[in-house]
Design a protein around this nucleic acid. Structure first.
Lengths: 198, 198, 198, 198
DNA sequence: TATGAATGAGCATTCATTCAT
DNA sequence: AATGAATGAATGCTCATTCAT
């Protein structure tokens, strides 16, 4: 009988094999030829495992995000206050360790803003939703634990979005110079108002 | 001297002549040939007045923004409360009347995220700064008039950025469904905390 | 021996299994993958029974032609005059019931014109010869029965080819508008000259 | 001012420059790169003068046909009888001097049978119509001059198409072995019946 | 000052066929 | 006998910018 291949695993193998050039060249300059070469397979083989170029990118990003999510989860568990947890979320936008993934995120946003096709939107929604649900539960938990006032819930989406907003502004203008400082300052001020003083 | 004035005027003429196709086709599908044709000049002539394609786009966007700013200023003056003024700013992200300019804004962000060259950043900074300074003074004035608490100042950049963040999220994911509602809700909650109750 | 019979039968089974997609997609868009899928076998298995893709098409067309020939033969026997019999042959080029086979015929001609390799020519010759021999005997019989003049024999190949010629012209130009009418008119005029008046 | 180029002439120049490779490689294997190279211009320049690859082919074929038509017209004028004139038309299908154009004609038919898009049909119609009108007037003239019987008119389309039909049959099968002989024989038999005996 | 002819790099994708198992 | 994973060649078209006139 024929060779049986773990399609799922091979997808990952191919995707991971080009992680480096993906980071180096960015999404737009990544060619199928490069991917095939770095994966050590023929170009045709790529299309046995991926529907198209976009599909490969989705797979890579998916893997990277999942890797990162595990780390985040560990770190979140290690933190005790809601403020620290919220701040941890915003670290992605400025920390040195996320510089590569952040660059991809920019390209992703860029592509989606230009071509908001449904697959792209769905993929981005899937990625973001997981984050947002975590974020929501952190705020809810903060209230439940008597750490935050009841109305903190009303600020959930705003607290979640403000990082994104400042990130974009800092990426496309000089208005936000020191993103890290600005974010900390904002969250500090917010939590001063939202935390129940003991 | 007269010649210089003509140059400035002709820049505007050329830029304005293609405003329509600019809105219709978007930035990426706007070709120099189209611009030349709609302006009634040769392709070479375009390069007598503009350094490159980007330069033309800057000119068009500049004109459009200035047009819009005049309108905004009028509307701001007609409003009495700080909350209303702040909300007016965020209207850009969802109002029907700004749909075309908003589309361009998306494309602009998209381009800048990919190619954050200094000219692009400077231009975007120039555009945003003016807005931000207005925004800053509105908050400051709100405090001065005893409408807002002193610490409202600490939220200026956050209040300014949250619209951007939700806008991006609503553009690239399905997480923010009803942008208008979400924004109003956030600002209402914020101002409940920031306004001095009488 | 039994195995050989199985091979022949399996060829037919595979060929017939994709008759539908063959009609739907045409020759060029029919892929080996589709054939294998619709036949419920692996791609490699196809090559156990067929030399190559062309071979599969030959098999399908062969089956379809044989099916059609039986029908034609029945209809021919039911007709009494030579003119009617000749006209029946040309029905293929315009009748609604042959629309699918006609489409394949076009594709077949198209392929053969581009790649007149010997196998293709032989196959087409085999298909056409049977028809032509019928046609020839019909004319001969018409003469023998005193229905047609002796010299009618000289027009055999012409009468046989004119349908093909008009069909091609109607397929690649707008010159022949109403193929059915033109053919009838031509045959009527011809038979007026060839029939022995009583 | 700018350089003024005779666009019409340059189209012809480019088209003619690749006449040779056109004959050698056939339509399908003719690449834009080859055309550009043989014309001594950049690939982009090709698209200043032609809408697409098909457009180039149309131009080449157009030129070749016009060249040939002039020759045909001269030869027609030199012939005295209608039979000779009609036979001259069919020479295209077998004569040695038309071997290259005939090859193109095959490819053209092949392409059009597969993709009968309107532009292709229109082009082919334009080419064929001119021929057909000539053919029609030759028959009409033959009748007017008392050379042919009145009813010869009814055979015009048939006489025109039979050459095409036999040509296709000889191209895709072995049924018509000696196309030249068969055609002559058919036309001889036809004219025996259509000519007014003196 | 105005023109417009010329340029050329760059890239995803399909699918018949093979052959190791 | 049956399979299905792997392969890789091959190509049209766009458009910002330049520069000779």
């Amino acid at each position: 009988m024929a060779i049986i291949v773990d399609k799922v695993q091979k997808r990952k193998d191919i995707a991971l094999s080009c992680k480096e050039i993906f980071f180096q060249n960015g999404i737009n300059d990544l060619t199928i030829s490069q991917i095939a070469k770095s994966a050590g397979v023929g170009k045709g083989t790529i299309y046995e495992y991926f529907k198209n170029k976009e599909d490969i990118i989705f797979e890579i990003v998916n893997i990277l995000i999942k890797e990162r999510n595990i780390l985040i989860k560990e770190k979140l568990d290690a933190l005790s206050t809601t403020k620290e947890k919220v701040k941890l979320f915003s670290r992605f936008f400025y920390s040195d360790e996320d510089v590569e993934l952040r660059q991809l995120y920019k390209e992703f946003i860029s592509i989606t803003l230009l071509n908001p096709d449904s697959e792209m939107l769905s993929f981005q929604t899937a990625c973001s939703s997981e984050y947002y649900l975590w974020f929501e539960s952190i705020i809810a938990e903060g209230i439940a634990r008597g750490e935050l006032k009841e109305n903190a819930k009303e600020f959930t989406k705003g607290l979640f979005s403000v990082g994104e907003g400042m990130f974009i502004k800092s990426s496309v203008t000089h208005i936000v110079d020191d993103l890290e400082k600005e974010l900390h300052q904002f969250y500090d001020s917010m939590f001063t108002m939202l935390e129940i003083q003991k």
